[in-house]
């Protein structure tokens, strides 16, 4: 299935801003995070269709996943 992945802030470095990629049906958000070599402990918001989702969320054909890093400064 074809998915659009959007990365934010430091997650773009050495990767991409936005990319359309092919994934196996049933792929979860967590599997995509791991494939992109994103450190799980630095994950902030995970967004599909303007909503925050869990790592276990199964993606569907044509969806867009946006991945934000954890922001904690003041």
């Amino acid at each position: 299935m074809k998915l659009t992945i959007k990365l934010f802030a430091t997650f773009r470095q050495g990767r991409f801003d936005i990319a359309e990629r092919e994934f196996a049906p049933g792929t979860t958000v967590g599997q995509i995070v791991d494939q992109l070599d994103l450190p799980r402990e630095k994950l902030g918001i995970l967004m599909v269709n303007s909503r925050h989702v869990q790592l276990e969320r199964v993606m569907a054909e044509g969806e867009t996943l946006a991945i934000f890093p954890l922001v904690g400064g003041g």
Binding site: T10, E41, K42, L70, V71, G72
Partner: peptide, 24 residues
């Protein structure tokens, strides 16, 4: 708890980026 669900200790990306005058 939702926003920081994946946090396992330590700082966020501010540790590598710092903070400028305008963001705060």
């Amino acid at each position: 708890e939702t926003l920081y669900r994946h946090w396992q200790g330590g700082k966020g990306i501010e540790a590598e980026l710092g903070n400028p005058a305008f963001t705060p």
